[in-house]
Amino acid sequence: MAFFARSQSRPVAATGVEPATQTSPLAYVPPSTRELRAQAVHRLQVGMFGLAGMLLLVSLANVIMDRAKYVDATAVNTAAPAVTASETTANDPLVDMGVAPELPVASKDKPAARPVPARNPGEAPSP
């Protein structure tokens, strides 16, 4: 990266002779070979640590996914069903409030009758 500085005007000395070279504190000094090598090594180190970090992160995610698949595959539901049919009539809170109509409950002995849909007056009877 280059730094450019404006040349600063200096007052001419009392003798009237201008100095031959002007030195500015912002003058560009090219980096030495040692500095260039240190920068390259630093870039290489950062890149290698980045790649190693990504590899570690992907490996960790893979281990977690494999473990989750293993647990899902080996899980067995051995519990008996906790819900059993009761002989009493079901209490429906919506029916109690009058929001929903009461539907007939079919017993095990006789199947429920199929409801007949209402026809429009202009429709032909279905076979």
Rank of each mutant, 00 (worst) to 15 (best):
D66G: 00
Y70K: 10
M1Q: 10
A90N: 04
Q8F: 03
M48I: 09
E87S: 13
E102H: 05
V29C: 06
Q45H: 10
L56C: 06
Y70P: 00
A124Q: 04
Y28K: 05
V29R: 15
D92W: 00
P117A: 15
G53T: 05
T23C: 10
P31G: 01
P101W: 05
N91V: 05
A113S: 12
A38T: 01
G47A: 11
L44Q: 15
A124G: 01
E35Y: 00
G47R: 08
A82P: 00
A75G: 02
A5C: 13
A80M: 09
A40S: 10
P31Q: 07
E18P: 01
Q39K: 03
S107D: 14
L36C: 00
K110V: 13
N62W: 04
P31W: 02
P25A: 13
N120I: 10
P93N: 02
A100C: 08
Q22S: 12
F49R: 15
V99H: 02
A82Q: 15
N91R: 07
K69I: 06
S32E: 07
V29D: 11
P117T: 11
V71Y: 07
P127V: 02
P101I: 08
A20D: 11
K108W: 15
T15S: 12
T21F: 15
V83T: 04
P81S: 14
E87H: 03
A90F: 12
A61K: 05
L94A: 08
L56F: 04
A61R: 09
M54Y: 02
T21H: 15
A40F: 11
A124L: 10
E87W: 08
G16N: 01
P11H: 07
F4L: 15
A40Y: 09
T78L: 15
K69V: 02
P25T: 02
V99Q: 01
A85S: 14
A2Q: 06
V12H: 10
L60K: 00
A68V: 03
M48G: 00
P127F: 03
D66S: 09
P19A: 12
A85Y: 08
A20R: 13
A100I: 10
D109R: 09
L51N: 04
Y28W: 10
A100Q: 14
E123W: 05
T88P: 02
A61H: 03
A75R: 12
T15R: 12
G53D: 13
N62Q: 10
A118S: 06
G16E: 08
V83Y: 08
V76F: 04
R34F: 07
V105I: 06
D96G: 11
L26Y: 14
A80L: 13
S24Y: 06
F3E: 05
A82C: 00
N120P: 00
M1P: 02
S86N: 06
P121H: 05
G98Y: 03
P125S: 12
P121W: 09
A20T: 13
A73M: 03
V83D: 07
K69Q: 14
A5R: 08
M65I: 01
V46S: 12
N62K: 02
R43F: 05
G53C: 14
N91H: 07
A27H: 06
P81W: 05
A52H: 01
V17G: 00
L60M: 09
V12T: 14
H42Y: 10
V41Q: 08
L36S: 04
S9L: 11
F4V: 13
F4T: 06
Y70N: 05
V105R: 10
D109P: 00
Q8P: 02
P127R: 11
P111L: 11
A79R: 10
P30G: 00
N77S: 08
